[in-house]
């Protein structure tokens, strides 16, 4: 027991010496608070955490995370990271917006960054990271409309909040664009752009819901489903795996799920990637270099902040013509000739 204690004290003493010296990358700690999906959700939180891991590797900083198990944990988790141990606190998700704002206003010297939330007016010590996800989702919608055999597509969300519905908006508009260009009549179940209502699981953690919602959409004829709910979509992938990919395909969100969900990788037609890892890394770089300031960081198709993942195993199923059209649409969105909204 005594030997164990000595072992424990040694690193603590070491840290004490380091703190006395100049601030270097090794002293810099980036802390992250997840939402209820958890750090290993294969999509949303995991992608953001990858940004911290990349920074650890590239810049030699320290990283810590705290998982929220319930919505009541948000504030508690942020509070337990205060007190000078974190150089920047990154909160992941729109739902942490209120808690992050309260903590940032009570602690004006602490740097914060939040994924998926833009404060208006901006708060000087919060850097928001937001994404034009509808640009990539538009391409996914166009692709799905070109791929569907039943003429029916499905989507559902986690919670009816802007960073979720922006995927669904882009997807529906992409499908409508395909209908207008090609004279098809593909429909999307699960989201009504006009009334702002649709299918929502009202959580970001139940794989059972993901399965049930995909099953409902499949029963209504959908053969491609876009779940926008973090790990909930893994339940949909399990269903697609059982039914067979010729009957049901899934479009991943946030990360390239072909890579992050290797067990079910064959069910993903593509993924709408949201490069939170890249923006988190640049936030950490800014904080480390002293150029950090409150405001907004926007990821777009043009700067690679959002994108459509490769088709991987399904590459052969997508016709060269469709691929060419998607490339044209990408160019059109970037140069502004195609609007992803109404």
């Amino acid at each position: 027991m005594f030997r164990l204690k000595n072992k424990l004290l040694a690193p603590i003493a070491g840290v004490g010496i380091l703190l006395g010296g100049a601030v270097s990358a090794a002293d810099f700690t980036a802390c992250q608070v997840t939402d209820t999906g958890g750090i290993d959700d294969n999509s949303f939180n995991q992608t953001a955490w990858k940004g911290v891991l990349d920074a650890q590797e590239k810049l030699g900083i320290g990283g810590r995370f705290l998982e929220s198990q319930a919505e009541t944990d948000y504030e508690a988790n942020i509070v337990s990271l205060l007190g000078g141990q974190c150089d920047v606190i990154i909160t992941v998700g729109f739902l942490l917006g209120d808690a992050t704002k309260a903590a940032a206003e009570a602690n004006p010297d602490q740097k914060f960054s939040i994924v998926d939330y833009a404060y208006d007016p901006a708060i000087p010590n919060i850097l928001g990271q937001v994404y034009a996800t509808d640009e990539a989702a538009f391409m996914a919608g166009y692709l799905s409309a070109g791929m569907t055999e039943t003429g029916i597509l499905g989507t559902f969300g986690g919670i009816n909040i802007p960073p979720v519905t922006i995927f669904m908006d882009g997807f529906v508009h992409g499908v409508n664009y395909h209908n207008a260009q090609k004279g098809t009549s593909v429909t999307v179940l699960g989201w009504d752009v006009e009334s702002r209502e649709g299918l929502f699981t009202n959580n970001f953690d139940s794989l059972d819901d993901g399965r049930a919602y995909a099953q409902n959409l499949y029963d209504e004829g959908a053969d491609i489903v876009l779940p926008v709910a973090g790990p909930v979509g893994l339940g949909s992938a399990a269903l697609a795996d059982e039914l067979g990919v010729d009957k049901l395909k899934i479009i991943g969100v946030d990360a390239d799920l072909y890579l992050t969900d290797p067990a079910k990788q064959h069910v993903y037609l593509t993924s709408i990637t949201k490069r939170m890892d890249a923006t988190v890394l640049s936030v950490i770089e800014a904080a480390l270099e002293g150029t950090f300031e409150g405001g907004l960081l926007v990821g777009t198709l043009a700067n690679g902040g959002v994108d459509l993942a490769p088709f991987h195993d399904m590459d052969a199923m997508v016709s060269d013509e469709l691929k060419q059209e998607l490339d044209d649409i990408r160019q059109g969105i970037i140069d502004g000739s195609i609007s992803v909204g109404d």
Binding site: T36, Q69, A70, E71, T72, D73, E75, L95, D98, N202, N203
Partner: peptide, 17 residues
């Protein structure tokens, strides 16, 4: 106690088990 003391609002998961 949770809604009036901790959160100041209600969201679906405030019971937290």
């Amino acid at each position: 106690n949770q809604t009036l003391g901790v959160l100041g609002r209600a969201t679906p998961g405030f019971s937290a088990g």
